[in-house]
């Protein structure tokens, strides 16, 4: 008996789908994804290298990209104005490559009056182009349900108390738009350089569950 990897194993239909035993080892969803992938390759819709290239591209994206965009907006009012009105162009001008088929990005600004919180109640839509993969909690049923029903309670669990004077706006990205929060520039950062400001912009502050770090707290890290 020749040893084959689950990827190469063929069933009686001749498709390169993993058989029942291999599927069991992989778990249901991994087996299903592998079956779909091999069908797409077999039908010539994609090539095996496309999947790897996409995975590499996704892994190359991180919240640092979003943080650079935010820090630039804090120091450059013209850039900020463009970021809020035409985010794709503004971000491309910073040197980021945004695929033409990516979902449209919208940047929403937190102010003294309004605080934004991002969720996708239907699945896990997320501004991956600027933040990379979403954190596990963002995809959890608990966050997706509670962020809309009890956003202030959820934020409290992240350590964020939103004043009653502030309007809390939840944005549910149900469709073709991905949202990025532009957090408020922390107080006491007027003298800081852009490169140092980048370090204050956390992933969670761009989802909206927490504010950006204050310079005092980041000095410890």
């Amino acid at each position: 008996m020749t040893e084959k990897t689950p990827h190469q194993k063929s069933d009686s239909t001749g498709h390169g789908r993993p058989d029942a035993e291999a599927r069991e080892q992989l778990g249901y969803f991994a087996g299903r994804v592998m079956a779909m992938e091999s069908l797409l390759i077999e039908k010539g819709i994609i090539q095996g290298s496309d999947v790897q290239r996409m995975a590499d591209e996704i892994d190359s994206q991180s919240p640092t990209d979003g943080a650079r965009v935010v820090a630039r907006a804090w120091v450059d009012p013209d850039f900020k104005a463009r970021l809020l009105t035409d985010p794709m162009t503004a971000i491309r001008d910073l040197g980021y490559e945004l695929a033409s088929n990516m979902p449209r990005l919208e940047v929403v600004e937190n102010t003294e009056q309004v605080n934004h919180l991002i969720v996708c109640t239907l699945c896990s839509c997320y501004p991956r182009a600027l933040l990379g993969r979403p954190p596990q909690w963002y995809k959890s049923l608990a966050y997706r349900a509670r962020a809309v029903v009890d956003p202030r309670g959820v934020m409290k669990e992240f350590g964020t108390e939103v004043s009653e004077e502030v309007e809390l706006r939840v944005l549910d990205s149900t469709a073709d738009i991905r949202f990025l929060v532009l957090p408020q520039r922390p107080k006491g950062t007027e003298e800081m350089r852009e490169d140092d400001l980048v370090k204050l912009v956390t992933r969670d502050s761009m989802i909206g569950v927490t504010p950006a770090r204050s310079p005092a707290s980041s000095a410890v890290l």
Binding site: R152, V166, E167, L168, L171, S173, T174
Partner: peptide
């Protein structure tokens, strides 16, 4: 929450 709070859905 507060009376001014909003939910925006696409």
């Amino acid at each position: 929450g507060c009376p001014n709070d909003k939910i925006c859905v696409d």
